[in-house]
Amino acid sequence: MTSIDVQDLTKEFGGRRAVDRLTFRVLPGRVTGFLGPNGAGKSTTMRLVLGLDRPTAGSATIGGRPYPALREPLRHVGALLDAQAAHGSRTARDHLRVLAASNRIPDSRVDEVLAETGLASVARRRVRTYSLGMRQRLGIAAALLGDPEVVMLDEPSNGLDPEGIVWIRRLLRRLAAEGRTVLVSSHLMNETASFADHLVVLGRGRLLADTPMRDFIHARVQPRVRIRTTDPGALTSALARHGHAAEEHADGHWTVRDARVDDIGRIASASGVPVLELAAEEGTLEQAYFDLTGAETEFTAQPQEA
C-alpha cells in the first residue's frame, strides 16, 4: 500500500501562492485524474511531491516518507514532468541507461521499457530527431524504468497521435489494475474521463474537489433525455400531460430535463408520437468541470504556467 499524501501543502513563488493549503490523498489501485486550468498548481504540486521544490509550508509524502528519504527512488516512484527533459544529443537508450545506473537498475530493464513504449526500433537514434509524441513515450519509459508502485504523469497525452492516446489509456488502466498508485494531470476533460476513476480538481492552488469521477459528474450534471420526432406538437403536449417540459434545439431534436429514458419512451409510445431517436444523455466530465469552475469565475483567464 503506497499512497501519496499531501498535507496542508503550500508553495509561494515571490508572494504568489501557487499551491494553497492543499490536502488530499492519492490511493493505489485506481487512476486519479489531476485536473485544473493551466496555472492551477498541478505541476508545482508534483514537483513538491518529488522534493524538487521546497514547500513554503506543509508536507508531501510517499508511503509515509518524504521523497528524498526513499532509497533508490526510481524503484518506488516514476514520474514524467517534462517530455523535453532528455538531452537532444543522447540516444534514447543512453538517456535511460544514465537514469538506470544511478538507481542500480540493470540495462536489461532499459530494453524492456523501450519495447513496452514502442521505442525499441528507434532506441539508438538521438532524441533530437524525435517527435513530441516519441519524446512523450520516452518520458513514460523513464517513469516505468524502476517498475515503481507510484506513477505520476504530467500531461502524458500531449503530442501523442490517436494510436498513442489509446495506448496511454490502456497503460494507465493496466497500471492501476496491477495495484499501483497512478496520478495523471491533464486539462483535457474527455481524455481524463476515458481513464480516471477518481478526480482531484485544483483551482488557483486550492482543492476544489476530491471525489470519484462518477459522483463528481452526477452531482453536477442532471441527466437528460434526447428525443427526435416528426410530430413535435403531439410530443410536447404528451410530455406536458405528464409534467415534463421539453426544449427544442436548433437541429430539431428535443431534450427533457430530469427524466428517465424509460419513462419518456413509454409516454411517447402510449400517446402514439412517432419517435425517430430516443437516448439518455449522460452528463460529461467537461460539463461537470465547467459547472464547478464556473462558480469561481476569477480563474477563467489565468496566466499560463511557466
Binding site: G51, Y67, P73, L74, L81, D82, Q84, A85, H87, L99
Partner: peptide, 18 residues
C-alpha cells in the same frame, strides 16, 4: 550546464535526491 536545459535537472534530482 547540460543539466540546466529544459527539465534535465529535475530528472537527475528525481533519480538522486541527495
Amino acid at each position: 550546464s547540460s543539466e540546466f536545459q529544459q527539465g534535465a535537472l529535475r530528472l537527475s534530482l528525481a533519480a538522486v535526491p541527495q
